[in-house]
Amino acid sequence: MTTKKIKTVWVWTAMIALALSIPLTALAAGIGKEGRIVNKKGKANTIAELVAMYDSSSCIECHQEIHDDWALSVHSRSIYGTGRTAATFRTSVVNGLQEWAFSGVKGPKDVQVEHLMGCAKCHLPQLADANDSVAKELIASIYNWMDAVRAGNDKVRIVEENKLKSLNINCLVCHNRNAITHKWTDGYPQKGVVYGSTDGEHPSDAFPTMKKSAIMGESILCGQCHGLGPNLELDNPTQCATLYGSYLWSYTAEGGRETCQECHMRKSGLGHNMQSYRDPGLAEAALDFKVQTSGFHWRDASNIRPYVAVDISMTNKAGHVIPDG
């Protein structure tokens, strides 16, 4: 066969493959994915790009009070947390990924987005909309921050701390990206739309449309992260929060009917400052705690000793197991 003929064969093979791939792409599961924020903006290559992709700072102009409430919650610093969350990311690399023979991670520079999704599924779900360079930058930032803390280097610590705190569960995560769980039923969340409790126009250049989310007031919205238990869809399953599992199988199964939002937002009066046991009102409401004591003389043959019996009764009044997350 001559060189020209070989080329011809390859060209035809490539064209046939291309022709086959077009209908395959068109038939990819789900309609409307191309309207999502990540599809419109493209995957982020840096932390700054990821923050910009889900920038909700323009919400503050009209929703200052809600923003201020949210800023008090750990949703506003879901990667940094109390510092312990960020440190656990590092632990998961050192004591997890680097120790596992088949993870492909020998050091922090090998970390990819997929490696972090066990944590980021909830702590930063939008990381799925970033390239691996963001995963590497995130881990490098956590390492730099921890090294700076240990070395007492406040200048570096503050820079890295601010970078880590720029990553969070903000307005657009709940009111856009994660506002629809059943995307084949309700459609994919679209760029420029704020999902909430009503349909209509939204006076914002960046988000000109409001649409009703079928789950904004339902527990499943929160259950996406405050989850069911082991995330078996991952190549190496993790288990962090099991709260939605206990809500379904211990609370609703026994007749409970309140939603996460009813207790943690409305009844508590906390709104978007969603808290758990660290809020005195929720800590009080969650548990009925009774103590009964009775003293008497204990007689052991001829030996008499004063004795007290302490009976403690604890009833969980929350809609989920305590403790959980």
């Binding site: 206990s246 211990s250 604890m314 009044k317």
Partner: peptide
């Protein structure tokens, strides 16, 4: 853990 709606009881005995 404490499960929703369920009561757990603990009993302690202490000599004076």
């Amino acid at each position: 853990s404490l499960h929703p709606g369920k009561t757990k009881k603990e009993h302690f005995e202490i000599f004076y």
